[in-house]
Computed example of a mutant assay.
Amino acid sequence: MTRLLSSAVYRRMIALELQRMRKAAEVTQQEAAAKLGCSRVRINHFESMRNLPRPADVEVLLPHYGATERVEEFRDVITMLKDVPQDSDLARLAEVPRGFDIYLGLEQGAHSIRSYEAMIVPGLLQAPEYAGVLMRGHDEELPEDEAVRRTELRLTRQRVLDREGTPLELTTLACSPP
């Protein structure tokens, strides 16, 4: 199997594909849950990246969705992800809002990003001093140690621009105020 750039990319693929296949088979989450012998919430968690399904879950759900030929592929990816550290190394640098760790993982696994910033330099291009001023200026009551952690997180994210093998291709449009 190829080297993982980001487990979040694979987790997202699993979630989107499970949802797409379920809908294509015109199976409701409630019906999928009944087939698996669990609650509808558990199916929702699979489809929202909150939890990975177990390989045994995939072996029940995919044939129910009419996708028997994909069981082995899903089982292999899920098994591989169990042994891979989650994309939380960046998130540990600063407390991040729920769900932002997923964004960080997807950003780290992306091949290209296009962005538009109307008022500030894009985060992946910010100099340390500029990023620090933004962190402190956004929340005047932010403790200094948290501002430093958030700035470190922003700067650490920039490593994706010169990573070995496949650096991120960043296309950005930034407009300055008049």
Rank of each mutant, 00 (worst) to 15 (best):
L106K: 10
R114I: 15
E47M: 05
M1Y: 05
A174V: 07
E141F: 12
V77D: 01
M135H: 10
K82P: 01
E69C: 00
F74R: 04
R163D: 00
P177G: 04
L61R: 04
L18S: 03
A127V: 13
S112Q: 13
G105Y: 10
V27H: 04
E152W: 08
R159Q: 13
D83W: 00
L155N: 07
L161S: 05
L18G: 02
V9Q: 10
V121K: 09
F74T: 03
L124S: 06
Q29Y: 03
L134Y: 08
A8L: 07
M49F: 03
E59A: 13
F74L: 06
R163F: 09
D145Q: 12
D89S: 15
E31I: 07
A147I: 11
R22M: 06
D89F: 12
E31G: 02
I43C: 02
L81D: 01
P178D: 03
V96E: 05
Y10I: 02
Q86V: 13
L155I: 14
A131E: 03
Y103M: 11
D89N: 11
F46D: 00
Y10Q: 12
M1Q: 07
R92F: 08
F46V: 05
L168D: 04
G109S: 06
Y130F: 14
L90Q: 01
L125A: 00
L90M: 06
E31Q: 15
D101T: 12
E144T: 12
A94G: 02
A147K: 07
R149M: 07
A32Y: 02
L36G: 02
E152M: 11
R42F: 02
D87Y: 09
E141W: 12
L16S: 13
A33G: 04
G132I: 02
R149I: 05
T151Q: 11
P167L: 00
P53E: 01
L153F: 03
R50W: 09
V41N: 11
L124P: 09
M13S: 01
P178Y: 04
Q86T: 14
L4K: 03
R3W: 03
L5R: 12
H45P: 01
G105T: 10
N44P: 00
S48T: 15
L62D: 00
L168C: 06
R136S: 14
R114M: 14
D57I: 02
E129G: 09
R157Q: 11
R154T: 10
D83Q: 12
S39F: 11
V58I: 13
D76I: 14
R149T: 05
Y103I: 09
D76C: 14
R157F: 06
L62Q: 03
V160G: 03
R75K: 15
G105H: 11
G132P: 07
R70P: 00
L18C: 07
E107Q: 14
P53Q: 02
L153H: 06
L170S: 01
E152A: 08
P178F: 04
L62M: 07
R114E: 12
L125K: 08
L153Q: 06
A94N: 04
R163G: 01
P122T: 00
P178H: 07
D76Q: 15
L170G: 01
V160K: 10
F46S: 02
Y116H: 14
E144M: 13
S7V: 05
D83K: 14
L93V: 05
E95H: 14
E141K: 14
Q29P: 01
S112R: 14
A56G: 05
C175H: 15
L170K: 03
